[in-house]
Design a protein around this nucleic acid. Structure first.
Lengths: 207, 207
DNA sequence: GTCTATATCCGGATAGAC
DNA sequence: GTCTATCCGGATATAGAC
């Protein structure tokens, strides 16, 4: 896929399709999305779109796979040798930034998982589980060394995922409740401060 | 709606339709769901189903509205006169129990919000916002009185929502990572302990 | 490479027999 | 109240002209 030689127009059109598909899939899910709306959003006709990707599923797989890796990076970057609170704060900061910068990707994954992850099962049980188990062990190590309070590392990771992705997946709800406060220029800092503060303050070890 | 007289068979069929619809809508979203699959799951023919509900949208509205109120109750029950940690722990406990007992409802709401909440907008900006603002003020009052550490009350509520609903909406992912540990008999307690512990420990005021 | 036209199927909804 | 049959719009995908 990645090594095929393509003309400039091909590259551009494929990119336009993937960008359009991301928006449609994230809003309506795989079943609810239509090739028609993707083609519209990509500014081309439906047959033309199907010249680049043979089927709706092929587009979906491509969008999923091309964005998945990016969401693993911040967790993978967590350094066992670092200070737990610096590492966790950095992680939370990165996840909040991603949720606010690329909410459509977050919603697409949420959608896929909510329908039982038919296309992501292997990824969830394989690469993701391996990475999470590994990082849970890192966090457990910090606890063993008395650097942070004891809690279940897996649930701590779930908590960070849930709280950060909430601002992407439930953006509509957050905006309905916070009004103009949400989405403004200082909002990312506000969220990072609140989330990081609440998550980490409970993990500090008493002096 | 509620006052119309109905035969026993009508009552049963309508209930079967709503139960089936909940499953289908929660997995595939409004657009992705089909009347056919709902009818199948309800054990009746499509025309027969449409004898009870005139359209797919009517079914959807009914399922949404009939389940919405239940999810507000635990928050509404939070008592300003109570102890903050008892009240918040009770709230978290109730939300975890609901997420594990009725995950399909949680996923259906998540789906509706993720697609921009076309049918729940008024609810989000009205009843929900009012309730959240009111309870945020209650939490703010506890902070003013020095009963708990200071943090943004709205984000605290979001955090409780996100962490508890995570176990319903991302159930597939949680199971992929935790394996047999998830879903077992002691799992609800495990989740309550982890979530309540992490959320509340950071809010305790120093001795 | 991109279009028009179209084959084919599926989904929502209705008509009318029983 | 429940069924079979069916209409019709919309959806995926393809054929073939340009």
């Amino acid at each position: 896929m990645a090594d095929v030689k393509r003309s400039r127009i091909q590259t551009e059109n494929r990119a336009a399709i993937l960008a359009a598909a991301l928006e449609v899939f994230s809003a309506d899910g795989y079943r609810g999305a239509t090739v028609d709306r993707i083609a519209d959003a990509a500014g081309m006709s439906k047959p033309n779109l199907l010249y680049y990707y043979k089927s709706k599923e092929e587009i979906y797989r491509e969008v999923l796979e091309s964005t998945l890796e990016g969401w693993l990076e911040p967790l993978a970057a967590m350094d066992p040798a670092g200070d737990p609170f610096v590492e966790l704060d950095t992680y939370i900061r990165a996840k909040v930034a991603m949720a606010l910068a690329r909410p459509a990707e977050s919603r697409m994954f949420a959608n896929e998982v909510q329908r039982g992850a038919p296309l992501m099962r292997d990824f969830l049980e394989g690469r993701l589980k391996t990475l999470v188990d590994e990082k849970a062990a890192v966090i457990g190590g910090w606890m063993d060394r008395g650097l942070m309070a004891r809690t279940d590392p897996h649930h701590l990771i779930f908590m960070i995922w849930a709280t950060t992705q909430h601002y992407a997946d439930f953006d509509t709800q957050v905006q309905a409740i916070l009004g103009a406060r949400a989405g403004g220029p200082g909002f990312e800092d506000e969220v990072v401060t609140a989330v990081s503060g609440m998550v980490l303050s409970g993990l500090r070890v008493g002096p």
